[in-house]
Design a protein around this nucleic acid. Structure first.
Lengths: 109, 109
DNA sequence: TGTAAATATGTCATATTCGGCATAAATTAA
DNA sequence: TTAATTTATGCCGAATATGACATATTTACA
C-alpha cells in the first residue's frame, strides 16, 4: 500500500483490526473504503455544484449538517446506503453512481 | 411504472409510503431498489459460479444462511453495504461492483 | 413416490447507523 | 484584525441492520 493511500485512509478515521498488512487493511477492506471515499467525494462535488451548504442539503434530505459532514468525510459511522440515497436526492442517476465507484478503481493504490 | 417492474418490487417485499405514484415509489426510491436488486443478483451469480451453497458462503463471511438468502432476495432488511462487502469477499473487484450497478440502468423500467 | 439438501421466511437480542444537538475549527468577507 | 458563515467533531437516545435460530418451502435425485 502506498504512503498517500495510507494517509487518505487514516484521514478518514479508519481503524481496522487483526490483519497482517500495514495498517491492518485486507484488500477487501481497502476496496470497500475506496468505494466509499469515491462516493463521498462525488457527493461533495454534486452538492457544491448545486450551490448548497451542508445545512441546506441536510434539510433537503431530512438529515443533519453533522451527518452530511460525516458522509462527505467517508466517516466509518456512515453507510454506503446513506451516501447513495443522498446522491440520488441530488439528482444523480444509477449510472452516475456506477461511474463514481468506477472512478475509485483508477485511484486505488 | 411498468407492470413487470411493479411485480419485481412487490416480489422483493418492498412497501414504501406517502408518494403519489402507483405503489408510492419516487424515482429515487426505485433507482435505489434497482441498484440493490442488481447487486443481489450479481451476488447470487457469483456464489453459484463458485459452487458454494448459501450455508457454505455464510460461514466464509461470518454470517448466516438466512441472511444470505435475504441478501440475494434484495430484502429490505439488508443494506447495500452488506451486499457489497459480500461481493468483495467473493473476489469481486471495485470495477465488478460498478458494472453490476451499471447493469441496473439498462434493466430499469 | 420419499427423502435429503438447499433455500426461504419469520422472529429476536444485539450491534450498528441514524438524526439531532453542542461546540470546535475553519473559511469567507468586512 | 473581527464577525458571520460554513464545516468538522464528539456525544447521545432512537431507529435500523445484523447474525442466529427455528421452521417452512422448494429443489434434486433415487
Amino acid at each position: 500500500m502506498q504512503e498517500n493511500e495510507r494517509k487518505k485512509l487514516e484521514a478518514a478515521g479508519w481503524k481496522v483490526g487483526n490483519v497482517d498488512e500495514f495498517l491492518g487493511l485486507s484488500s477487501e477492506e481497502s476496496a470497500y473504503i475506496e468505494m466509499k471515499l469515491a462516493l463521498s467525494q462525488t457527493l461533495r462535488q454534486r452538492r457544491l455544484n448545486n450551490h448548497l451548504s451542508q445545512m441546506e442539503f441536510a434539510k433537503m434530505v431530512h438529515s443533519s449538517q453533522s451527518r452530511i459532514a460525516k458522509m462527505e468525510a467517508g466517516d466509518p459511522s456512515v453507510s454506503i446506503d446513506l451516501i447513495v440515497k443522498s446522491l440520488l436526492a441530488l439528482g444523480a442517476s444509477t449510472q452516475d453512481v456506477a461511474n463514481a465507484i468506477s472512478s475509485a478503481t483508477s485511484r486505488a493504490a
